[in-house]
Design a protein around this nucleic acid. Structure first.
Length: 500
RNA sequence: CGGGCCGUAGUGUAACGGCAGCACGAGUCUUUUGGGAAGAUUUAGUCCGAGUUCAAAUCUCGGCGGCCCGACCA
């Protein structure tokens, strides 16, 4: 009995010690939820202790990464002729009401501003949950002629949604940071082209630069953006088999232009309503995906192009010769990368672990051995390899690394999707696939309103949701099967996955 | 918004209704440094408000905040 008690004490003591360490105490694929919480705190991405529910403080490391994300997104949008704006944060309630589906969809999550000083406003003002009803109010004043079209805008903004569900840092909080684009086109066809362009932008930036794998779906009728005619959304996959909705692009058609009077005079002198589209990459959530998709049991792994510090030089000993060589390297590398020398008084091992947690792509270790042998030791975070490189080859080696490191992370991430999509012909099988962390591909009666009841049954029996039809399969694959739920002939092939 | 759990130094954890303790961190000094160094020394805490009680971190109520699970979303 006594020994049992003593053993318990020892276990407790050891456990306490593990929890005190600065490293991650769980493996990503064993307890994903806990892993994510720890990375956010231990890599100092956000402080969750701000005293308003659902709001948090973004710390420098995440802010610097997100600044880079903004810059890639904005550069791409501007190349595609979107013009930047900053719109007000407040939107009068009457604006929100101008499109009926929109107001119904958003009302439950609006923060309202009702007074200024001690004076009550006659009309409530919304803290923008999204800015359609702010932009289109002005579009109606700005757009006169077909010569003004296409009218392509965007803004970087923080938006507010009164989420009722427990929030998760970066993935879901009551204030989040994004870019929203709003475009007016002369014809439906032009608007459709814009949606294609938005999807292409998503691929160019989120996949090719940030290394995130995703599938674009057309959402079913019951899951569209409030007020949209058609909604297309990219789902990024988490390692635990759940998907996260990332940028979505919407064909708003003419509902909003009619509500706000966004009209133009055509070449024929006749008045027409504009065709509106909008697109919303949520940078703070995209950041979450970068953390989740690339991170490992040691912490973050940042693609070269997103890392605030790309190369860190770690002097192993405090020795004048070592410091001189570190300075030397610093100046050479600064010409094409952000470099930092870790001068802290921590032990070598602790420095190594610290920078691995932060996800810095390249580390250079410098000690007396390297001085003697005219070499340096280079550690790369993407593959975990450590190599001794001759001094004269260092620059070339790191330049090459810079080019391929993002691609390596991208390829590693792309692979994840391969085995996860599994065909199913009945709900029992679908449930099995979902429970083993997969995504189901199956026949489905309809993604129009008449399919909603079958969708409810899918949710009921699998706990997962119908994500929609895969965009690049629309019209290409003939669906010959039957609906996985009702057994009627399947008009669509859809995908089913659990969601974050 | 419903159901469950929770709030003690910066962090993680102890204390039957009866002296709030331990570890890590942080500060200073010395010795160290090739995968989470050591000694000396200093530092700091019961979420907020009310109630019960001789006595509350502990019990009750309210507020604020967090975590998990469901309906909503980017």
């Amino acid at each position: 009995m006594k020994t049992e008690k003593a053993a318990k004490e020892v276990v407790k003591e050891i456990k306490g010690k593990i929890e005190d360490t600065k490293g991650l105490t769980v493996k990503k694929n064993e307890d994903f939820s806990e892993w994510y919480t720890q990375v956010v705190q231990k890599a100092e991405l956000a402080d969750l202790r701000y005293n308003v529910k659902g709001f948090l403080v973004f710390q420098p490391w995440s802010v610097m990464v997100m600044e880079k994300m903004y810059s890639y997104l904005e550069k791409t949008l501007q190349q595609k002729r979107h013009k930047p704006y900053f719109f007000p944060t407040l939107i009068p309630e009457s604006n929100l009401k101008r499109e009926s589906t929109h107001i119904i969809g958003f009302t439950p999550e609006v923060f309202w501003v009702t007074e200024g000083g001690d004076k009550k406003f006659e009309e409530r003002l919304a803290l923008r949950p999204t800015s359609e009803t702010a932009f289109y109010q002005m579009f109606s004043l700005w757009i006169r002629s077909y010569k003004d079209l296409p009218f392509k805008t965007y803004q970087r903004a923080n938006v507010f949604r009164y989420e009722t569900k427990a929030t998760r840092p970066f993935l879901r909080s009551r204030e989040f940071h994004w870019i929203e684009t709003h475009c007016v086109h002369a014809t439906e066809k032009d608007a459709e082209k814009q949606v294609l362009e938005d999807m292409q932008t998503t691929k160019e930036v989120l996949h090719d630069v940030f290394g995130l794998p995703f599938i674009f779906f057309e959402r079913p009728a019951w899951d569209k953006f409030p007020g949209a005619d058609r909604t297309f959304a990219a789902d990024v996959l988490n390692p635990d088999g759940r998907v996260v909705q990332q940028p979505s692009t919407h064909l708003l058609s003419q509902a909003f232009s009619k509500g706000f009077g966004v009209k133009y005079t055509g070449a024929d002198g006749k008045e027409n309503y504009g065709w509106i589209t909008c697109y919303g990459p949520a940078v703070s959530r995209i950041f979450a995906s970068v953390v989740i998709v690339h991170g490992d049991d040691k912490g973050l792994r940042l693609p070269w192009n997103l890392a605030p510090i790309q190369v860190v030089i770690v002097p192993i000993v405090d020795d004048p010769k070592v410091m001189e060589k570190a300075d030397n390297l610093y100046h050479k590398l600064s010409s094409f990368s952000n470099v930092e020398i870790d001068m802290t008084n921590k032990s070598a091992g602790e420095k190594f672990n610290h920078w691995e947690m932060k996800g810095v792509p390249v580390r250079i270790d410098l000690g007396l051995k390297d001085i003697k042998e005219k070499s340096v030791t280079i550690f790369r975070r993407d593959t975990g390899e450590k190599k001794v490189i001759r001094e004269e080859n260092v620059l070339g080696y790191i330049k090459k690394l810079a080019e391929e490191s993002g691609k390596i992370l991208m390829r590693q991430a792309d692979k994840v999707f391969d085995d996860l999509i599994i065909n199913a012909t009945d709900l029992k099988k679908a449930k099995q696939v979902i429970e083993s962390g997969g995504i189901v591909r199956c026949g489905f009666c309809s993604i129009e309103k008449d399919g909603a009841s079958c969708s409810d049954k899918v949710e009921e029996s699998t706990g997962a949701k119908v994500r929609g039809r895969k965009f690049d399969e629309i019209g290409k694959t003939k669906t010959s099967g039957v609906c996985i739920v009702c057994g009627k002939p399947a008009k669509e092939t859809v995908y089913i996955a659990r969601e974050y």
